[in-house]
């Protein structure tokens, strides 16, 4: 489809160029002097007009006329008999062939190097109808504007969740922070904030996230999300035993139907294996909080 359209365009353009080149009856233009004389005679009539208007004295006009007359003579004299050659028809056909070959092949090659053949347009309105992410993003944007005017904690929490879904972790973290600032100062919010920061740092529990989790546990020492991530932080610091201890502690506190249990158990097994010890030998222990 793309290539057909491009080929059509190319043929159209090339044939416009080839037409004058291959046409049999070439009209011959008048000699150069004809063009010159046309200008000179228009200059002469301008002089006449200026004399009529009285802008030019007769004397000046005569001088100007003499000059123009002389230029006319010179142009006529310098004008060789114009020999518009029909030229070599073969050369023309050869040129046409080169053009007909060079343009399509050259354009095709360059396009395949620079273009993204087959890539459709993605107008925003279209995406807004079909692409769920764009729909959500636009909702988030509207919500963000609304919140800007009438901020409330619940709204920001929702916005943060949407951003998290859209993988816009930085914005999500910022929204959680706003929700906390606006009064949702609870363990859940803090641990979500920490999680968003971790996500924004592609999985690393950075100091900012650490302090968010610490905050969460300071409010509710049993907050599971924060405990999980603090375990992960320990694991990332190569303190595998500490990590396992924290996670086993979390495992013990979790109800049997807790959604995170499968993941947690998988982690415990995997990390214990990496550390080369039996997880059961590590006594469960809550995370050590340096500063609340």
């Amino acid at each position: 489809m793309y290539w057909i359209a491009f080929a059509f365009l190319t043929v159209l353009c090339v044939s416009a160029l080839l037409y004058p080149l291959l046409r049999r009856n070439q009209s011959t233009a008048p000699a150069r002097a004809e063009y010159d004389n046309l200008v000179y005679s228009s200059q002469l009539s301008e002089i006449a007009q200026e004399v009529d208007r009285g802008v030019l004295s007769q004397e000046q006009a005569d001088a100007a006329r003499t000059e123009i007359h002389r230029r006319m003579l010179s142009a006529a004299a310098g004008n060789k008999r114009t020999t518009h050659s029909e030229g070599n028809r073969r050369a023309r056909i050869a040129a046409a062939a080169v053009i007909a070959l060079l343009v399509p092949v050259g354009s095709g090659l360059l396009y395949s190097a620079l273009g993204s053949p087959g890539m459709p347009d993605q107008p925003y309105a279209e995406r807004l109808r079909h692409d769920p992410n764009v729909i959500i993003a636009s909702t988030a944007h509207k919500l963000a504007v609304q919140l800007e005017n009438k901020p409330y904690a619940g709204g920001y929490q929702r916005l943060a969740e949407i951003y998290l879904y859209l993988n816009e972790y930085d914005r999500s973290a910022a929204a959680y922070q706003r929700a906390i600032d606006l009064g949702d100062n609870n363990a859940d919010m803090w641990s979500h904030l920490g999680e968003a920061i971790v996500a924004a740092n592609s999985g690393t529990v950075v100091p900012d996230a650490l302090s968010a989790f610490t905050h969460a546990l300071g409010i509710d020492a049993k907050e599971p999300r924060a405990r999980y991530y603090l375990g992960l932080a320990a694991a990332q610091a190569h303190e595998l035993k500490t990590a396992i201890a924290i996670w086993r502690d979390l495992e013990m506190d979790s109800t049997a139907d807790a959604p995170w249990l499968p993941l947690l158990r998988q982690r415990i097994t995997a990390y214990a294996k990496a550390g080369g010890f039996d997880p059961a030998t590590v006594p469960p222990e809550p995370p050590l909080l340096s500063k609340p």
Partner: peptide, 13 residues
């Protein structure tokens, strides 16, 4: 100031 046209020039003109 240009010199006036010569007769010859006049004729050609």
């Amino acid at each position: 100031e240009p010199t006036p046209l010569t007769d010859e020039e006049r004729r050609s003109l």
